[in-house]
Design a binder for these strands. Structure first.
Length: 272
DNA sequence: CACGAGACCTGTTCGC
DNA sequence: TGCGAACAGGTCTCGT
């Protein structure tokens, strides 16, 4: 479900509620949610630890405890909510941490793809991630060089977390539309100018997503409204906001991919 | 290295 | 109305 802006939005809501709270009990309701350590050790280690801060790295939530890091990835359908008072576990709850001040952190995840780690050193989980797109590390010249160091379809490459960390299916389609680049463009044919426009576009869609508190689709409403501002995602058959051409949907790397065939024409290169 | 298919899961929507 | 297919914001692994 969530991409970078949604994770950022969730963290913003959790931070004021959770910082300073101490974990009093653990209710693990789907064992495979927990990657590391064993359920028994997890409970033993986490009880009594205090939440000190919460950060994001890529699409991971990184909860700094007094003696460990609690790492959470929401994958497709995960959600985190804070509830006050007596709480009756719901059908899709996978992990519930009861805290001081009569508060609980609930990890709900219908599809059971989400994962949780409790680690002394979180870097092992992050070691294969590319740069953060909103950091200073991500520059137009880095992007141009990185695109040319591989030969891949732009859509697939932007989704690859080891290339760039944080984009998912929605924001990739939106960024490519803004940059007027076809999703199947070979990465090493992008010009310096196009790379710069793509760099601006990636940052712009992510910042807009954060500003709008992310996108809320399907049955989960978490307050964001970026879904009302999609240019191409999920809009196949509807008019491109720029030129009016019907948005098309194709499959790239097994992901639904939405683009405007006029604004994002595939430019043929080679043999002139 | 690049790419496609399959796996992991449940729920909703689409098409006949 | 019913029922199977297709689809869903993600990522890993395997075979070619």
């Amino acid at each position: 479900m969530p991409e970078l802006p949604e994770v950022e939005t969730i963290i913003s809501s959790l931070r004021p509620a959770l910082i300073g709270k101490t974990i009093l009990s653990v209710d693990l309701r789907w064992n495979r949610t927990l990657v590391n350590p064993s359920p028994k050790k997890f409970q033993k280690v986490i009880l009594g630890q205090q939440i000190q801060d919460i950060f994001r790295r890529a699409k991971f939530l990184q909860i700094k405890l007094s003696g460990s890091y609690l790492i959470i990835h929401l994958r497709m359908s995960g959600d985190l909510l804070v509830v006050l008072g007596g709480y009756q576990p719901a059908k899709h709850d996978r992990l519930i941490l009861k805290m001081t001040d009569d508060m609980s952190l609930v990890f709900s995840d219908p599809r059971k793809f989400g994962r949780v780690w409790l680690l002394d050193d979180p870097s092992v989980v992050f070691q294969n991630l590319g740069p953060e797109p909103l950091s200073d590390e991500f520059t137009p010249s880095w992007l141009y060089a990185a695109l040319h160091s591989r030969h891949r379809q732009l859509k697939a490459l932007l989704l690859d977390q080891s290339f760039l960390a944080g984009l998912g299916n929605i924001y990739t389609d939106e960024a490519l539309h803004l940059a007027r680049l076809h999703p199947l463009t070979p990465s090493d044919t992008v010009t310096v100018e196009q790379a710069e426009i793509l760099w601006i576009s990636v940052r712009q869609v992510l910042q807009e997503g954060i500003q709008r508190n992310g996108a809320s689709i399907d049955w989960v409403y978490r307050g964001g409204d970026f879904q009302n501002h999609f240019r191409v995602y999920g809009r196949q058959g509807k008019a491109c906001p720029v030129c009016g051409t019907k948005i098309e949907r194709i499959v790239v790397g097994q992901r639904g991919t939405h683009f405007c065939p006029t604004c994002q024409a595939l430019i043929k290169t080679g043999n002139g």
